[in-house]
């Protein structure tokens, strides 16, 4: 077998292949997380568009997708990381830390690009520290990033005692979240455009490149991957850096949305992101997960939250519904595994 044939994607088994061999539609839907998540989303959207006139309007879908973007963008990075069997719990505190520092630097140097550069640069630095501590000291990433979560939260509280207000009054600043990249024929808000860009980019990277396939190999069997010549720590470092940089980017969109950098932003954000990634078919044991699955999971959770607000229910139900959806997804996952084991 030549090296070329190994590298061709059509000849390597895609990670979902072994579970997607059902025959009936029901079996197909059950066979992959993407399947049943799509089913769920269709049901929720049909229900909401019947019950609410506002739901299927261009404006509401724009708002819904913008909110989804905040979680999904970080979620894409987290998917890569979790495929490689690592996890980053510090993304929630990143929202506060990066938000506060980006707002402060915007107040000092009022150029939009400065803010974005600071946000992404801080993300890269935190990612490098996370990966350095995880890979060089050999502490599990769960603990390293848990510590980093507290360090960054503490740093955010130390650098400002209250929210950092918008003193620069840049007109372009609020447009980062509220503005649109195009207005005709449909209005596409900036966060949605950014999310779409990263969705396409990372889907291609994961499915079509050697990097993506090495990630799956690394996650499903690290020792075998290392023995077969995969640069374990280089790959993992890239994943850590991507995750943190994307978290920095969503932090920047968050301060644009709130128009202030708040030191208590993003409490529980990390668990929402990880929950969505796991719901999308990833596993803490690594080697599983797709970008599409993560996107569908965040879209499902976002649609439910949007629906709860639209229907005028108590907005606190959002928490409970998120929990119940995660439970249902894990249940389906365990059923799926049992069915595939038996067949």
């Amino acid at each position: 077998m030549s090296a070329e044939s190994i590298a061709r994607p059509s000849q390597t088994r895609r990670p979902t292949d072994d579970t997607s061999r059902g025959t009936t539609i029901g079996q197909r839907l059950l066979a992959s997380p993407e399947g049943y998540l799509t089913g769920f989303i269709v049901l929720v959207w049909i229900f909401l568009s019947i019950r609410s006139d506002v739901f299927l309007t261009e404006r509401n879908i724009g708002v819904l997708l913008s909110q989804v973007a905040l979680i999904a963008i970080t979620g894409f990075g987290m998917t890569l990381l979790m495929i490689a069997r690592e996890v980053d719990l510090s993304v929630g505190s990143m929202q506060a830390f990066v938000g506060v520092l980006a707002m402060q630097s915007l107040n000092r140097w009022p150029y939009l690009l400065v803010g974005i550069a600071v946000a992404i640069l801080l993300g890269v630095i935190v990612g490098l520290i996370n990966s350095g501590l995880t890979l060089k000291l050999g502490i599990t990433s769960f603990i390293v990033t848990l510590a980093m979560m507290q360090i960054l939260r503490g740093a955010a509280y130390t650098s400002t005692s209250a929210a950092v207000q918008n003193d620069h009054k840049l007109s372009s600043f609020k447009r980062v979240f509220n503005g649109a990249i195009i207005e005709d024929p449909v209005r596409i808000p900036w966060p949605v455009a950014i999310m779409a860009f990263f969705f396409v980019l990372f889907s291609l990277i994961v499915a079509k490149t050697t990097f993506g396939r090495s990630l799956y190999a690394l996650g499903s069997n690290p020792e075998a991957a290392a023995l077969s010549g995969i640069h374990v720590w280089r790959l993992k470092t890239i994943c850590f850096v991507i995750t943190s940089a994307l978290a920095g980017l969503s932090a920047f969109m968050l301060i644009a949305r709130m128009n202030s950098g708040q030191n208590n932003a993003g409490f529980g954000f990390e668990l929402q992101v990880i929950g969505a990634v796991l719901l999308g078919g990833a596993s803490l044991a690594g080697g599983k997960g797709t970008i599409l699955g993560t996107f569908l999971a965040t879209l499902l959770l976002g649609s439910l939250n949007n629906g709860i607000t639209l229907m005028g229910y108590n907005p606190n139900w959002q928490w409970a519904v998120t929990g119940i959806i995660i439970l249902i997804a894990v249940l389906l996952d365990s059923v799926r595994r049992r069915v595939t084991q038996e067949s």
Binding site: L271, S283, G323, I326, L331
Partner: peptide, 16 residues
């Protein structure tokens, strides 16, 4: 069901 995910779901559900 996997314990980490199950109890994560339970965490959201109870808080909600």
């Amino acid at each position: 069901m996997q314990s980490l995910m199950t109890t994560l779901g339970m965490m959201f559900a109870l808080r909600g």
